[in-house]
C-alpha cells in the first residue's frame, strides 16, 4: 500500500493504492469517474484514454502509481474547458456517436490533437485518432465533428 497524490480534473487527490493497480481501476472504482470506459483491457480499443500531464494514454496500460505527482484529465474535466465544450457540442451537432460508449475517449483524444495543432491536415487527423475504436462505425461523423471544431482551437483572430 502506498499513498499517491495526483490532480484529477483540477482537483488535488490523495489515494491509497497497491503497486499493481491500474489507473483505469482507480479512476473508475476509487474516484467514480465513469466516462473512462473499461472494455478490452489490453490497450487495443482506446476507450479508457485519459490525458496524463496533457498526453493521451490508455489507462488500462498505465499503472496508477505512474500518475503520482501528475495531472489526469478525463471527459468530465474537459466540460469546464471552453474549447473542449465547443468540441463536445460539435460531436452532438454532427451526430458523431450512436451508442456513445467511445465518445469520451474520442473527445479526450481529439481535444489533445486540436490543442496541439488546430490546423491539422485531414489525413493526419485520421492517423492521430487511430488509437480509439468505434464499434458503431461513426468515424466519418467524428471526423466531421473534430474538423468543424478546429475553429474554436485556432488562436483568437480579431472578433
Amino acid at each position: 500500500m502506498k499513498t499517491i497524490s495526483l490532480k484529477v480534473n483540477g482537483i488535488a487527490k490523495e489515494i491509497t493504492i497497491e503497486d499493481n493497480e491500474l489507473l483505469l481501476n482507480v479512476l473508475r472504482e476509487k474516484l467514480g469517474i465513469t466516462s473512462v470506459k473499461a472494455a478490452c483491457w489490453r490497450g487495443e480499443c482506446g476507450l479508457c484514454t485519459v490525458l496524463l500531464d496533457g498526453i493521451p494514454v490508455k489507462s488500462c496500460m498505465t499503472l496508477a502509481v505512474e500518475a503520482d505527482g501528475k495531472e489526469v484529465i478525463t471527459a468530465e474535466g474537459l466540460y469546464f474547458d471552453e474549447k473542449a465544450k465547443k468540441l463536445m457540442e460539435s460531436f452532438v451537432k454532427h451526430g458523431a456517436m450512436q451508442c456513445g460508449f467511445c465518445t469520451p475517449a474520442f473527445v479526450v483524444t481529439s481535444h489533445y490533437v486540436l490543442t496541439k495543432n488546430p490546423e491539422i491536415d485531414g489525413e493526419e487527423l485520421k492517423k492521430e485518432l487511430n488509437g480509439v475504436i468505434c464499434r458503431c462505425g461513426t468515424y466519418y461523423q467524428i471526423y466531421e465533428a473534430v474538423k468543424d471544431a478546429e475553429k474554436y482551437y485556432k488562436k483568437e483572430t480579431k472578433s
Binding site: 490497450g43 494514454v57 487511430n130
Partner: peptide, 9 residues
C-alpha cells in the same frame, strides 16, 4: 509501433 495513442508510451 502500436496505434497513435500507444506511441506516446
Amino acid at each position: 509501433m502500436g496505434d497513435r495513442t500507444l506511441q506516446h508510451t
